[in-house]
Computed example of a mutant assay.
Amino acid sequence: MSDDFKLNAMVRNDMGKGASRRLRREANLVPAIIYGGKNAPENISIASNELEHALQNEAFYSHIITISVDGNDQDVILKDLQRHPSKTVVIHADFLRVSKTQKLHTKVPLHYINEDICVGVKMGGGIISHNMTELDISCLPADLPEYIEVDVSAVDIGGVLHISDIALPSGVESVELSHGAEHDQPIFTINKPKAAVEETTDEEAADKGDNEETSEE
């Protein structure tokens, strides 16, 4: 992992919606919580500008984060983020403690590469469809990838890639596939261009009409 993220936080003692609103409006702080592991949940607050800056980096969402709570460092991952319904302002964040010796369950982004030279697009004018943009994975914190690359250069029109087609990094497992082969969902497809679909439909309709005329004769 190429980025190191560290946030500074303070213990938050005032609870309730009114207290949270005052934190955001008057102190420019975001209320948050750290939970999981053997320790009790901790209510904390983080400087809004510090958190917003970190959130601009995609890696922050799938990375081990160090939160320093009044000088006490804890390793966590971001589990949930709540934003204002009509603004981009973060109103609450949830962080989960992680242990170096215990596997964690989280989502990581899928980065599709070589779409511009994909056979189905370049040669057949196919239309790309991303069925999944992130993947549920299980791994030790040390093996957590920022993202997973999926090479789609060889996919032709009508072709479909499934979870099982992803080359997962060492130590990383798909949560879906751990439940059985029937959970091997499609992640990427190349569909026929609209004109080709309409042409096929017209041909099928014509063939049906010919068959009906033949049966009447």
Rank of each mutant, 00 (worst) to 15 (best):
D4N: 12
H84P: 08
A19K: 09
D75R: 15
Q102K: 15
L81T: 08
V119T: 09
L7F: 02
F95Q: 09
D210Q: 07
D151K: 03
V76S: 03
D207G: 02
S178A: 15
R21G: 03
R97F: 05
K87M: 06
L51R: 11
L161K: 08
V90T: 15
S170H: 02
L96M: 13
M123G: 01
I67T: 06
H183Q: 13
L96P: 00
F60K: 10
F95S: 06
N13H: 09
R83Y: 14
L81N: 08
H179P: 02
D156F: 06
G125H: 08
L29K: 14
H63N: 15
S129R: 10
A167Q: 11
V76R: 07
V155W: 09
T201H: 13
V152G: 05
D14I: 03
G159T: 01
G71I: 00
N39S: 15
H84A: 10
V11N: 01
M1I: 14
M1Q: 10
R12P: 01
R22D: 13
L78C: 08
V76I: 14
E58D: 13
S86E: 05
R24Q: 04
E26T: 02
N43Q: 08
E199C: 04
A27R: 11
K192F: 14
H105I: 14
E213C: 02
V30T: 11
I65M: 08
I113S: 12
S62C: 06
D151V: 00
I44P: 03
E58R: 13
E198M: 07
A142L: 12
K6V: 06
V108C: 04
I91M: 12
I166Q: 00
T201R: 13
I44W: 01
E50K: 12
S2R: 12
M10Q: 12
K79L: 05
M15A: 10
H183A: 12
V150E: 03
A32L: 04
